[in-house]
Write a protein that binds this DNA or RNA. Sequence first.
RNA 1: GCUCCUAUCGUCUAGCGGUCGAGGACGUCGCCCUUUCAAGGCGAAAACAUGGGUUCGAGUCCCAUUAGGAGCACCA
Length: 504
Amino acid sequence: MPAQTRRYSILSNKPVRVRFAPSPTGYLHIGSARTALFTWLYARANDGVFILRIEDTDQNRFVEDSLQQMMRSLRWLGLEWDEGPDKGGNYGPYVQSERLEHYQKWANWLVEQGKAYRCYATPQELARAKELAEKAGKRGAGYERMHRFLSDRERARLHDERGGKYVIRFAMPLEGTTEVYDKVRGKIVFDNSELNDAVLLKSDGFPTYHLAVVVDDYLMQISHVTRTTEWLPSFPLHARIYEAFGWEQPEWVHLPVILCPGGGKMSKRKPCKSEEGETIPVSVDEYIDAGYEPEAVVNWLTNLGWSFGDDREFFYVHETIQRFNFDRINPAPAKVPLSKLKALNGEHIRAMSDERIAQELHPMLEAVYGEIDTNKLLGIIPHIKARINPMRDAVPLVKFLFAKEFVPATTEQMIPRKMDAAQVKTILQRCYDVLNNLEDFSAAAQDKHIRALVEETGLKTGQVFSPLRWATIAQEVSPPLFESMEVLGKEVSLARLRDAIQRL
RNA sequence: GCUCCUAUCGUCUAGCGGUCGAGGACGUCGCCCUUUCAAGGCGAAAACAUGGGUUCGAGUCCCAUUAGGAGCACCA
């Protein structure tokens, strides 16, 4: 192996400690949520520890309240952490801006070891160098190394001249290759000549991501570094920093990014649209607002880039924990399949207990209709659960049951095509008589007797059912007729029917 | 432009050299059920990007091309 070529591979079998490390720049992005989910799943699948760490080393990008928002979103998804800023732990603090001493200490250590150096270049000088490099058809490597090879005298002179203002840059090997090993895609080889001397410590004394992530992951004993492929280009840098410190490498897991159906990665800035022009929610909050159930979002996200096996796509998170690993991750980037979320959401609702649905629906209905009769609500749920997706679709569907004031149908609505008012009036009157005579007002009994009536009159089912439904339910879309009347009750149903007959 | 990653139905995916004349799901389209709307049942159309290798045999391995993606900051 050439002197400058190193291989980094995975040998250790340490306890699983993984972390989700967002920077508090806004809401929790759906892509970040998936990274958090996969990380959390790995921890739970391996009796590991899941850590929340805040990467707030950019003072300019800090967004007030962002941390609270993110924690709320994570908890909504059910991704509870074991160590974190609000919980503490043995490896804290868990907020990088409170860990500055570590970064400074280790950055200086690297300088002392000759593995990093102070660079006094001003932003203007760098911009100019960059411009020149671009003009020469080059980009990246080269321009920033202006202060890497200085004599002590030159360095001292610059130090005075620039008022002691400098950044610390990592001294990347100039030749050879760096081989790294990613759990998802295997060996990746980089040419060292393509790499540049990244800034580790900024002139304000704050670390860059590159320094902070390595120092913290090491100090927090992170066993598996999970992140998206955005970080693949700086993978060799991070591996080299570990090497420079003499620290054992963690395992590296680069998850594929998720894309907008229209192309490009989902961004917080640009709105993301489906091919049909429909807006695709980007933050977890937007998914909450859209009315999706947390278990559906989790189920959906789990299927994006990972597969359960057995041709199953509907499952619960406890089932995922039984079999989650990084081996089944598909390395290819994927477009968000929003229509699958809708389908999954409906499936989860249908699989929920009536009590759970009632619990979710109660406050929504109360807000619109006032006090809600729990028995009636529980009674109607079996007949609406296949018709509500998202959950709030229930609100208009049960209006006939809970609205303070019943708004009767118009006569036009009650009269089917090719029939007239007189016919409808007659048939409704006969329905009234049949229903009124019923001891047992169950849907089954109603069904039996009304069907007998249909038979007797020689009319089509729709010619009887439709006016009856309009007369008693008075909605374009409703749960099934007899079941609805059963829950409504005999008295109310008949009163509405009587009124309809009068108006015809 | 340079570096790196990726490549199976429209989309999400299964497939880790022979069991693949490629399986599932969503979506789409038929049919059935049906009082509305759903749900459900049955069925159909729909893919291994292209070209070279390797091999007795390639969707599966290698290379190139093409396409998509990511990155190239004193941002993460």
